[in-house]
Nucleic acid binder design. Structure first.
Lengths: 146, 146
DNA sequence: TATAACCTTAGAGCCAACTCTAAGGTCAAT
DNA sequence: ATTGACCTTAGAGTTGGCTCTAAGGTTATA
């Protein structure tokens, strides 16, 4: 039986975070001392580790809530239930990736276009590009003007 | 001279957002009617467009504040001042990209490993992977167990 | 028995960038 | 003169995931 500080050590999650997860229905201490101290058993620990792993994978706490309810009753759920959640998450991640890649490209083009030197910014091509609206929508491809 | 709703139309930013940007010192209406209505001139419009472009490029409002203070007095700033901000942003974007790419890879591996079919989740390999801690730190590379 | 290091709870605060509300004033058209 | 569409402000609410505080109770050690 682990106290919350010990569970915190084992998992790398703060006691605050563990209580927060409990408040949001993700985890629980299966026992309490007379004084109300939480005590976690092995099964509790594994559940917390599941949550942590899912979190690292990018799942939101809401997603994890769904995954956990599958986890406690696997018989009543299908593999498709699981892949649906995973697929949805992958789509979100891919959307974010696309957005960030576009930013990355723009920033790289901006940096290439500018000398970056100590001369004053009167003709700075980054400032000019931002002033000019930066992007032109040609051929469905956003690209830096000039 | 544009009223705020007209500037909103021109820029695609809501009147709420325009007032919010003003409150945070990014933009301003160079004139007001007797009754206090904001009126924007061409220079105001260009500044708002600059903000919007910078926003689309991924810069935070704080970054944009810095870029704007360069913009109004280019003579007192160097190209390096501009590239410093841009470079910092690029590093942030790259860090986020790395994180998301790792999530993407994990999610794809999970999806590959699971049948995704209507059979019950008793032996679902995604659930098993999440239960097992999913990742092993071998050779500094996170990879899916099995 | 005193002290320090734990534990409890409810609830507030943080972050960024909006987004919206309330309560009221203005303006153009009917 | 009245509608309805605008405008103003200060300030509250939203999102997600923590993070922290206050005020108090418990436990182990000296």
């Amino acid at each position: 039986m682990l106290k919350i500080s010990e569970l915190s050590e084992q998992t790398g999650l703060s006691a605050h975070t563990l209580r927060y997860y409990e408040k949001h229905g993700l985890i629980n201490a299966s026992n309490r001392s007379e004084a109300g101290y939480r005590f976690y058993n092995d099964s509790d620990l594994r559940r917390v580790q599941f949550v942590k792993t899912a979190r690292n994978t990018g799942f939101s706490l809401a997603d994890i809530g769904q995954l956990l309810s599958i986890r406690v009753d696997k018989r009543s759920h299908s593999c498709q239930d699981v892949t649906d959640i995973t697929q949805k998450k992958l789509l979100e991640v891919n959307a974010k990736l696309t957005e960030l890649q576009s930013m990355q490209q723009t920033l790289e083009l901006l940096l290439e276009s500018c000398c970056g030197g100590p001369e004053n910014a009167t003709h700075c091509s980054i400032m000019e590009a931002l002033d000019a609206g930066l992007l032109r929508e040609d051929n469905k491809e956003a690209r830096l003007i000039k």
